[in-house]
Design a protein around this nucleic acid. Sequence first.
DNA 1: AGGCGCTTGTGAAGGAGTGCACAAAGTTGC
DNA 2: GCAACTTTGTGCACTCCTTCACAAGCGCCT
Lengths: 229, 229
Amino acid sequence: MTDRADAGRDLGVRRGGVPEATVGRLPLYHRVLVDLADAGVDTVSSDALAATAGVSPAKLRKDLSFLGSYGTRGVGYEVSVLIEQIGAELGISSEWPVVIVGVGHLGHALANYGGFTSRGFRLVALFDEDPELVGTDVAGLVIRPFTDLPSVARAEGVTIGVVATPAAAAQDVADALVAAGVNSVLNFAPVVLTVPPSVDVRRVDLASELQILAFHQQRRGDELGQVAR
Amino acid sequence: MTDRADAGRDLGVRRGGVPEATVGRLPLYHRVLVDLADAGVDTVSSDALAATAGVSPAKLRKDLSFLGSYGTRGVGYEVSVLIEQIGAELGISSEWPVVIVGVGHLGHALANYGGFTSRGFRLVALFDEDPELVGTDVAGLVIRPFTDLPSVARAEGVTIGVVATPAAAAQDVADALVAAGVNSVLNFAPVVLTVPPSVDVRRVDLASELQILAFHQQRRGDELGQVAR
DNA sequence: AGGCGCTTGTGAAGGAGTGCACAAAGTTGC
DNA sequence: GCAACTTTGTGCACTCCTTCACAAGCGCCT
């Protein structure tokens, strides 16, 4: 949140200078492009791609321009080239080892989520505290006791961890992940995790999303009554 | 994304003029405040609350100022008052009926997610196409066939729907939801839904979140090698 | 070979969001 | 009742993001 865009400053090189807002959309573009490739499309215009991804054409072009000039004027973008370039930017070339902690329904859902491997991730372990679950097979992996985390994390070089535990356990889990060398955490528990500044946490929160929807819904309702003043 | 902040324009009245970025943080504040209330705290300063929520104090104060002046200078904010006001802004006073479509692991997890009712939502029905699942009990509700959606939605006045189906089914489900009068959709399927402009869709995407984390992770790694130029 | 039409890439303008710093306002202690 | 201290609320400057508009560039057609 602070010192992000200070590398590659005065150079024409924009590598590393991709704005945060753009980074947030790259995965979307990547997915849409893969879908297009699967459908046999091999060239798209920015207008068509933007429409498919649900963003404005100008925004899309500017986003892509941060990666370099991979389009052909008068024609459009070659789908395979874009997939390649966005993939490289997102680090899909390498395979990030990922662990999931907490194998309730949510953990289950995440573990079975297809497209881990196709998007540059490799699910290396599932952890849970519940002795009933430990030893069980999920998504081709055996659930391991949470105490195994440090050894597994170190052995596999895990840097990304997913917290899918109840709220009460989340902070302890986060602490353990950090201690085991993980410095990117995806948190599904409805709590604010406290971590060292070097660790990157992203929060995914069902209730927040619903409440944001409810807010807009309510506003729409309000406007019916008090429009045009 | 387009015409959001045009009501209550030149007036001193800011009701309805809450910026989108602020709206996105209100649920977080609300949750943190409820936790504080549960812990017996009844007054917080903006600094303390900001620290707990993981945002800067200035941002927090500005966010709260959009709701009105509910703090006491020299003292802080009364927790119960803030909960009340944020709740009102988010529409927690009313109870929004919600349906979930798709009761796989993710649907299960969502259905069992506590704090629906405490946050202004009431889960009124679960739907699935799978005949094996229909009739099953989940979270105190019987899973109903997807074809029941229209009648239930109309009967309960459902305006918010959650899509927790596989990607292939998501668009059809969204169409059915829209046809049934739902105009706020929370989409967990990894596809871009096409809906009329009057319908509000929010997308929650595991893969995107992971890829954003991976991007930052990669950048951190890169910097180690090519820092300070 | 040259011009025409299409689409990209980008400079510049406008808007939204954030951080700073301080005045306004309340409380506590004397 | 006054002064000192604390904390809110907000105007201002700054940065980041988005949108607009158009020149630059490429392919196709004649």
